[in-house]
């Protein structure tokens, strides 16, 4: 029982990053109807940029300054998104969906190679923040403080996104475009601009996910593909295109993964796929998805 809270915090920790990745994926799909397969490596890009930025700072840099450098990856990923959408994705909106899948899948590969080229084959670590942040004691067991920071950022991001989408004028336009792109366009919404903004925001979230996890885990080349697979499980459970779905899906996956490791160590990944399969059978559009 004394480990209940630690297990719970671990579950929230993976839910926090998963929400950031899957939330971005869902947002992009919800507005643009694009399944962005490159999303995994946009997350990895965020991780690499932050690891690189933290690595540029000299040893002994005070921890608050390190925290200021943390969002570098999110900003980098957002900039990348802002460039990619108009140049690579826009020409394919009028084509069949298969083209978009091919393009984003190609982009996933290319981004992986670009990161390999720029940052080399070895894992890029930036563990100073992780090491400096120390641990607190939960019922006599140390727990890394930095994990709490990640959980908090995940929580804030969820609250901020909710407010952004449901409480601002931009959010209204975004939702209107998502519900009916032609009608929104007829009413004078600049759909191109909404698209690039939504894509940028989605990439920002993925990049933020990578940025906050890298001090604890270091950036490795394959991290994007693994994250993509897990975030697909999240959106399958929660419903593609729904932010609430991404949040609930991420929490479910986080908790089930933790329970899987604790109790079904032999099949920790299979448990997640099994759950996704059950959701697909019972509610094919996911828990919060709109059946179309």
């Amino acid at each position: 029982m004394d480990f209940f809270f630690i297990h719970l915090l671990n579950a929230l920790l993976s839910a926090a990053t998963l929400f950031l990745i899957a939330g971005g994926l869902s947002l992009i799909y919800g507005v643009m109807r694009i399944v962005n397969l490159a999303h995994g490596n946009i997350y990895a890009f965020g991780a690499y940029v932050t690891a690189w930025a933290l690595g540029r700072l000299v040893a002994g840099t005070p921890t608050p300054v390190l925290y200021l450098a943390l969002p570098a990856g999110a900003v980098g990923a957002a900039l990348l998104g802002a460039v990619l959408e108009p140049t690579l994705l826009r020409p394919f909106y009028k084509r069949a969906e298969e083209y978009q899948l091919l393009v984003t899948f190609g982009l996933l590969m290319i981004l992986g190679d670009v990161m390999h080229f720029v940052w080399g084959p070895y894992p890029l670590s930036a563990s100073a923040l992780w090491e400096n942040s120390g641990s607190l004691s939960i019922a006599g067991n140390p727990y890394p403080n930095y994990n709490l920071v990640v959980i908090a950022i995940g929580g804030f991001a969820a609250a901020f996104l909710w407010a952004f989408v449901y409480k601002t004028r931009f959010g209204i336009v975004l939702r209107a475009t998502s519900q009916n792109m032609r009608m929104a366009s007829a009413l004078g919404v600049n759909v191109n601009r909404i698209y690039v903004q939504a894509f940028t925001l989605g990439c920002f979230m993925a990049g933020l996910g990578g940025a906050i996890i890298v001090p604890a885990q270091s950036a490795v080349l394959d991290m994007g593909v693994d994250a993509l697979v897990l975030s697909f499980i999240v959106v399958v459970i929660g419903g593609l295109g729904s932010l609430e779905g991404a949040l609930v899906g991420a929490l479910i996956v986080g908790v089930v993964r933790e329970m899987g490791i604790a109790w079904f160590a032999e099949i920790e990944l299979a448990v997640l796929y099994l759950m996704a399969a059950i959701v697909l059978l019972v509610r094919p559009a996911g828990l919060f998805g709109r059946a179309s």
């Binding site: 996890i213 270091s218 032999e266 920790e268 990944l269």
Partner: peptide
């Protein structure tokens, strides 16, 4: 039994 290539061991360590 973490997957080969994973960098997140929080849950395995806790267990």
């Amino acid at each position: 039994w973490p997957k080969l290539g994973t960098t997140d061991f929080s849950s395995h360590i806790t267990k």
